[in-house]
Amino acid sequence: MSDVVLLDVRDRIALVTLNRPQKLNALNYELIDRLMALLDRIEVDAGVRAVILTGAGDRAFSAGADIPEFSASVRRGTETAVRDFVRRGQAMTSRLEAFRKPVIAAVNGIAFGGGCEITEAVHLAIASDKAMFAKPEIALGMPPTFGGTQRLPRLAGRKRALELLLTGEPFAPARALEIGLVNRVVPHDELLPAARDLAARIIRHSPLAIGGIITAVTRGLNMGIAEGLQIESEQFARMAPSHDLGEGLAAWIARRPPVYSGR
């Protein structure tokens, strides 16, 4: 079994670690494929309610794509590069974005290129005060290809995103917080505890409601308000006959803590 991505499950939280520290956790094809397989496993595991995604070592969350491997794909032609690199990376970030269990990035160091695009795609992100972000693809003579030209403008606004995309210059955690790329910046030693605390505050609620909110927000962002409201209504309709909604209402009326079953 590949160890380029590690999985540790405790207290209903899956800690997923990108594990190529000697390569600054660069996203080679093996790592992306392993991450996708673990997400498939986590999705159907009722014992896992949230995911924390981080990088091995103290230097990097992920420095981005594995450039030597990507370069080899480019040399084999456009069709190969699009199939092996672009589609694989976009499938990864789309999977993270649409995952119905909350995914929290714990950005422990460099988050360049694809590492920044993962941060853009996940639902929530906490950054170490030692983290550093960049959109350096422009220096390679190319645009971002894992969704960065689409998600960053939606988070930061068009002009702020274009400045980062067109200069490729690194930016600090404070800037990432200012533009909405991360939710919080914490001292480095407090990063994983802060991520676990956030996950714990989320998973005390109904997993059905959590999934419905993530789906409604993720899909609705790319639609007009009328279509978004329809998605919101559909997610409520899924909850209406559930045990969790009945339990939540009954607990509220009785002034007691709810006990959710995920059904």
Results as ranks from 00 to 15, higher is better:
residue 6 L to M: 14
residue 7 L to W: 04
residue 7 L to V: 11
residue 10 R to W: 05
residue 10 R to T: 14
residue 13 I to Q: 10
residue 15 L to W: 10
residue 15 L to K: 13
residue 16 V to M: 09
residue 16 V to I: 09
residue 18 L to I: 02
residue 20 R to F: 01
residue 21 P to A: 06
residue 24 L to N: 03
residue 25 N to Y: 00
residue 26 A to M: 06
residue 29 Y to D: 07
residue 30 E to F: 02
residue 37 A to P: 01
residue 41 R to F: 05
residue 43 E to S: 08
residue 44 V to S: 09
residue 48 V to P: 04
residue 49 R to A: 12
residue 51 V to T: 09
residue 55 G to T: 06
residue 56 A to Q: 01
residue 57 G to M: 00
residue 63 A to E: 05
residue 63 A to M: 10
residue 63 A to R: 02
residue 63 A to Y: 02
residue 66 D to P: 04
residue 66 D to S: 13
residue 70 F to P: 00
residue 70 F to L: 15
residue 74 V to H: 05
residue 74 V to W: 03
residue 77 G to Q: 07
residue 78 T to Y: 13
residue 79 E to N: 14
residue 83 R to D: 12
residue 85 F to N: 12
residue 90 Q to N: 11
residue 90 Q to A: 11
residue 94 S to N: 15
residue 95 R to I: 13
residue 98 A to P: 08
residue 99 F to R: 02
residue 99 F to G: 00
residue 100 R to Y: 15
residue 102 P to A: 13
residue 107 V to W: 01
residue 108 N to E: 00
residue 110 I to Y: 00
residue 110 I to V: 03
residue 111 A to T: 02
residue 115 G to D: 07
residue 120 E to Y: 12
residue 120 E to C: 15
residue 121 A to P: 11
residue 122 V to C: 13
residue 123 H to K: 14
residue 123 H to T: 14
residue 123 H to D: 14
residue 124 L to M: 15
residue 124 L to V: 14
residue 125 A to M: 09
residue 125 A to H: 12
residue 129 D to C: 12
residue 130 K to P: 04
residue 131 A to Q: 14
residue 132 M to Y: 12
residue 134 A to G: 12
residue 135 K to A: 15
residue 137 E to C: 05
residue 137 E to W: 09
residue 139 A to S: 10
residue 144 P to S: 02
residue 146 F to L: 01
residue 146 F to E: 00
residue 149 T to V: 08
residue 153 P to K: 01
residue 158 R to F: 11
residue 162 L to C: 14
residue 164 L to V: 07
residue 165 L to K: 15
residue 166 L to M: 14
residue 168 G to I: 08
residue 170 P to A: 03
residue 170 P to R: 04
residue 177 L to D: 10
residue 177 L to S: 07
residue 181 L to Q: 10
residue 181 L to E: 12
residue 181 L to G: 10
residue 187 P to G: 09
residue 189 D to K: 08
residue 193 P to R: 08
residue 197 D to A: 01
residue 199 A to I: 08
residue 199 A to H: 10
residue 201 R to W: 07
residue 201 R to T: 09
residue 204 R to N: 05
residue 207 P to Q: 12
residue 209 A to M: 11
residue 209 A to Q: 05
residue 211 G to Q: 06
residue 212 G to R: 07
residue 217 V to Q: 11
residue 219 R to Y: 04
residue 222 N to C: 09
residue 224 G to S: 03
residue 225 I to A: 11
residue 225 I to M: 12
residue 228 G to Q: 09
residue 228 G to I: 05
residue 229 L to S: 15
residue 235 Q to T: 08
residue 236 F to I: 11
residue 238 R to N: 06
residue 242 S to F: 00
residue 243 H to W: 02
residue 246 G to L: 01
residue 248 G to S: 04
residue 251 A to N: 00
residue 253 I to P: 01
residue 253 I to D: 02
residue 254 A to C: 05
residue 254 A to Q: 04
residue 256 R to N: 04
residue 257 P to W: 02
